[in-house]
Design a protein around this nucleic acid. Structure first.
Lengths: 231, 231
DNA sequence: ATCTTTTCAGACCAAATGGTCTGTTTTAAA
DNA sequence: TTTAAAACAGACCATTTGGTCTGAAAAGAT
């Protein structure tokens, strides 16, 4: 299994899925198997994101998923495979938002949209965000190759879009990578540092008002901070 | 040991320290003891910040510090005490920068200064930053009380300063807490996600040019984003 | 209903790891 | 130089934990 291969497994698209009649042999079993595997993955993400790889016990995960340790090993041959599969799955969702960076569009629209999408991710997948953060902090032993290749080339691509905005005078000059980092850090902050945010504000992104307030605060700062020349 | 008590231990200020003549009995021994303890703490911070609490072995730390496991236990009675002491030490440095928020001053100066100080911390103490981040991500089991009390009240205090700027029309209306979060996240990003930053840009805050570029990018974005009314 | 394959559980194992016990060496004070 | 306390090391211990082995229960296909 290579690090670059980040395709979801076990989610083969069924042609039709006839409701009650017999399907091809083994299909029912496969589905049940895949479903349970998926369930374990979700449970494990939740635990891993709380305690980290080393801090998490296989038994903890098994208990959370209400199965025996042995049963878990029936679905995943070892702890690392389980952890790896989770990380792979996360990466997929992770880069979807950035595809909206397109040259033709208006910077303000694109940026506003992107910020919102990232913030929604922080709201809806905070555990994934934290697991990702844990991985990076600890030196990205697994994802390093991915960062240096796939991610880097995607960012270089999107940088060109931002640069074209600059050269057309649509936004103030700024290092495109820096801009992307700003958006990432400010949005992910509300997932990764969720505990701190909650301790201080008493609120959460799951609070609709707080979400909107945060979203527009970030949008405003960045949009206005990028407004054309200089006052 | 309460969580609120975050005083440095083992750094009692010596009145004078006569160079070679006899000092009070036991002083030499105490200093040697304290120095070695400090050295172990620094080594341990480095290891803990890489692998987290659970991922770190006492033996790893001992090896890194070039002492025996037994010897380490002579200086710290157990793993938790070692970890706790490190966290306490970190917190002290952590809040120094925020004290510069004072009402009388010009917002632009204060904010620029604060951003620079925080970014310097990210450059000079990235390991401390990452350990702090690890702690928060995992639910801040140790620091939660501190966040909800000390930190919260400090922030409420500083919020008033920012609010006064707003009401005087010196900056555009913004939620003060959000502004502070914005600064924290963008500056700490370069310590916590250092690996990612390096993978993509090839650079680091230790690179002087990159540091200055980053610093002024953040400063500009925030200052300009807060400029008076609205274009 | 039967039978074969899949799914699952309990007992068990070996390695890793936090921590202790005992005793030796080093060091500073006298 | 002597001596008592401090600093240190190696063997050892108990627990935790990832992972296996054997066999029983469940379930789909016929």
């Amino acid at each position: 299994m290579t690090k670059a291969d980040i395709s979801l497994k076990g989610t083969k698209v069924q042609p039709l899925k006839k409701p009650r009649t017999e399907l091809e042999p083994g299909a029912r079993r496969r589905k049940k198997f895949d479903d349970k595997r998926q369930f374990i993955l979700e449970t494990a993400l939740s635990v891993f994101s709380k305690y980290g790889f080393h801090g998490t016990t296989i038994e903890q995960i098994a208990n959370s998923a209400d199965i025996s340790k042995t049963n878990l090993f029936y679905y995943f041959s070892n702890k690392e495979e389980l952890y790896l599969t989770i990380l792979e799955n996360i990466l997929n969702d992770w880069l979807k938002p950035i595809t909206i960076f397109e040259e033709v569009d208006d910077p303000e629209d694109v940026l506003k949209n992107y910020i919102r999408l990232k913030l929604e991710l922080s709201r809806d997948q905070p555990e994934a965000s934290r697991l990702f953060c844990l991985e990076i902090i600890q030196g990205a032993p697994i994802l390093k190759g991915y960062l240096e290749n796939e991610l880097k080339s995607i960012l270089q691509d999107k940088s060109k879009v931002i640069e074209s905005w600059v050269s057309k005078g649509k936004i103030k000059p700024i290092n495109p990578i820096q801009l992307i980092f700003f958006i990432w850090s400010t949005t992910q902050h509300f997932a990764d540092f969720n505990v701190q945010v909650k301790a201080i504000t008493g609120k959460d992104l799951s609070n609709k008002k707080f979400f909107e307030e945060t979203c527009s605060a970030i949008q405003q700062l960045i949009i206005d901070g990028l407004k054309r020349p200089r006052l």
